[in-house]
């Protein structure tokens, strides 16, 4: 019995250790939110919230300082929008192709190859956007600046494509066979089945993948840092240099900004803005996915 009680203590200790490891994930979240809130609150002691939201300029590193996050948000949104213009149609079409048309062999070969796209380090995409895609586009669009929102947007779209494609395909795959068979029995073509039956039935799952893709796009850092410039501006013109939230954080981090200064805190205020957006999108995506699961249980 002595052996057993020793064993029990061991088991208890192990459980405790495992619990501590598991709670690390909660601590990470608390850490992220805590750090962001702490520095952001300090930031807003010096800059009014109103100015932060309405000032059209973001120039914390200049002598004439302005703290209007909107120009960074605008740049972020612009690049993300271009990325979505690429990723959503291509992702959806390839999802339809892979789930409704392709042979099993084709899927087996192509899916892992597409996954490689998602595994390429983003700094590589940045290189490609700046030194290959932009020069190529400049041939087609003479007014395109060397740094712009268009090229990184397109490259980012391709990077996100496998995620959209594979999550949408999962959703389409989960649509019950009898729904499809019903349509096929009426003489529908695959196209009709895909567009009239499968996509509507899988819609919340597909939307969930879109929302997640947007979240990925606005959080992406290196492509835009390398290829879209460092000029925050309130514009929807994809041909000129802009700056995203993420690129701004990198820009400051590369410099020698001492901690505790207002400049230092701007990256946390920017980070907080980014975090709030991505969190909202992630939760929305999660909610859509749950809804989709509910429908086909």
């Amino acid at each position: 019995m002595d052996r057993r009680s020793r064993q029990r203590i061991t088991e208890g200790c192990i459980k405790g250790i495992l619990f501590i490891c598991a709670s690390l994930s909660i601590l990470t979240t608390i850490g992220i939110i805590g750090i962001l809130i702490f520095e952001t609150v300090e930031f807003f002691r010096e800059v009014s919230f109103f100015e932060f939201l309405t000032d059209p300029q973001w120039t914390p590193l200049f002598v004439d300082k302005h703290f209007g996050i909107m120009s960074l948000v605008c740049g972020t949104a612009l690049v993300a929008f271009i990325a979505m213009l690429v990723a959503i149609p291509l992702g959806l079409l390839s999802a339809v192709y892979l789930s409704e048309y392709a042979s099993a062999r084709f899927r087996e070969v192509v899916k892992p190859l597409l996954e490689i796209l998602a595994g390429v380090p983003t700094v590589v995409y940045g290189y490609f956007a700046l030194l290959f895609v932009t020069p190529l586009l400049q041939v087609l669009i003479p007014g395109l600046a060397g740094f712009n929102a268009l090229a990184p947007g397109i490259v980012m779209g391709i990077m996100i494509l496998p995620m959209v494609s594979s999550l949408s395909e999962d959703a389409m795959y989960a649509v019950p066979m009898d729904l499809k068979e019903g349509a096929y029995a009426l003489g529908a073509t695959r196209f009709q089945v895909a567009v009239k039956v499968v996509i509507p039935a899988a819609l919340s799952g597909i939307m969930s993948s879109f929302v997640l893709a947007v979240s990925r796009a606005i959080g992406e850092t290196m492509i835009v840092t390398i290829a879209s410039g460092q000029q925050p501006r309130l514009t929807l013109n994809p041909l000129v240099p802009i700056e995203t939230i993420t690129a701004y954080i990198v820009q400051v981090s590369l410099g020698d900004t001492p901690s505790g200064t207002l400049e230092y805190r701007t990256i946390f205020a920017a980070g907080m803005t980014l975090f709030v957006f991505t969190l909202a999108l992630n939760l929305m995506s999660h909610w859509l996915k749950e809804r989709f699961r509910e429908e086909y249980r």
Binding site: I35, G219, E220, N282, S285, H286
Partner: peptide, 16 residues
Amino acid sequence: NIANLAGVPSIIYGLL
């Protein structure tokens, strides 16, 4: 929480 952490942009981890 874990699902959300997986979706937090990597630069935010940098700030952490």
